[in-house]
Design a protein around this nucleic acid. Structure first.
Length: 308
RNA sequence: GGAGGGGUGCCGGAGUGGUUAAUCGGAGCAGACUGUAAAUCUGCCGCCCUGACGGGCUACGUGGGUUCAAAUCCUACCCCCUCCA
């Protein structure tokens, strides 16, 4: 499997599409937002034409009001992977959702404990009243290892750890395993100087507006999707909803989308570190239109030697 | 021409004599992460020295002044905004 990682807007998809011209590849998306149907512009999904020319997996897999999670992603991506491998095509994973990427690349075994909404509501209410510290103390008691890595203020993660204990009687830290995949993986990372990346992001956000992001959000609202859904809380959607409710001007909404996307890019670097030597990094700084020929050729050679 | 309001750190915006390098928000920087992950959460954030404690320097439009002490009071000047004409 080839995996292309990096922050949003560096040109991962573009590079991937170029590669599919030279190799019989199919793309597996590792993007936590492109999974939602009807959310095309704001998530910068590949175009219908692109998706017609190359099979794309794990895109448009759920309705905006359906639950999604790492575990579901893990399963879908694994199924796609097996199917591609059976066809003897080259699986090409592309995406910026670090959690999703590493879960596959490192072969995480995710604790099979689906969300227990009743328990969650209950614990959330308690956190509200008694403070998350109280829950944290309980977690320390039953799962000290997990408690060590969870901040006492991070109610959401405390609750999940408690939820796992509630369901299995075991500390979540005991259930976390890795099973390294039995096939070789080539990791390619794209990076770019920070200020240039921010410019690319800003440009792309402006284009999303031109392409009709506001209308896309209006349509989602018309279809009855609540702004409080996780899907609608994604960057671009949340801010446009605020604009449509007259809480901010369009100008402000656009600025916020840009800033939030900058933050997203920074967070993505926490998952894909330029110092991580498992990743073959390519710097696209100073290159106007994303991926240029030099980099494409280098990557091509790398892939060629990898598959031979 | 007349009346009034205001100039604070990258931006917005508190603060009206000392405990203020200056609440808070944004931006920026750094980090955690195994069923919400574009989520949730954490740290830093004037400059210089220090790993940290701490120390030094410069700061609230500009120049004077009052005071032991001023972003906060007085004064002159510059600039901005609103209303009336």
């Amino acid at each position: 499997m080839i995996v292309i990682v990096g922050p949003t807007a560096v040109g991962k998809s573009e590079l991937a599409l170029h590669l599919t011209k030279y190799f019989p590849a199919e793309i597996i998306s590792a993007d936590s937002r492109q999974i939602y149907r009807y959310m095309d512009i704001g998530t910068n999904k590949p175009t219908p034409a692109e998706r017609l020319s190359v099979p794309h997996h794990v895109i448009d897999v759920v309705e905006p009001d359906q639950d999604f999670s790492l575990a579901i992603y893990h399963q879908l991506a694994n199924e796609a992977l097996k199917a591609i491998q059976q066809k003897e095509n080259l699986p090409l994973m592309v995406g910026g959702s670090g959690l999703y990427v590493w879960s596959l690349v490192e072969g995480w075994k995710i604790p099979q404990v689906p969300p227990n909404q009743k328990l969650r509501d209950q614990l959330e209410a308690r956190a509200e009243q008694e403070g998350s510290q109280r829950l944290y103390l309980e977690l320390q008691d039953i799962d000290p290892t997990a408690a060590e890595t969870i901040n006492p203020n991070n109610t959401r993660r405390i609750i999940r750890a408690l939820e796992i204990y509630d369901a299995t009687g075991q500390p979540s830290s005991q259930l976390q395993r890795k099973e390294v995949p039995d096939f070789p993986i080539l990791l390619i990372g794209l990076t770019q100087e920070r200020s240039e990346l921010y410019e690319m992001i800003d440009w792309r956000v402006d284009r999303m507006i031109q392409r009709g992001l506001v209308e896309e959000v209006e349509q989602l609202l018309e279809k009855g999707y609540s702004p409080s859904l996780p899907s609608m809380s994604g960057i671009g959607y949340r801010q446009i909803v605020q604009f449509l409710r007259n809480e901010v001007t369009l100008r402000e909404a656009i600025d916020r989308i840009k800033y939030e996307t900058h933050r997203l890019a920074r967070h993505q670097y926490a998952w894909f570190r330029p110092g991580d030597n498992r990743i073959h990094w390519f710097n696209t700084s100073k290159i106007k239109a994303g991926v240029n020929l030099t980099i494409l050729n280098k990557v091509k050679r790398l892939v060629e030697s990898f598959i031979s």
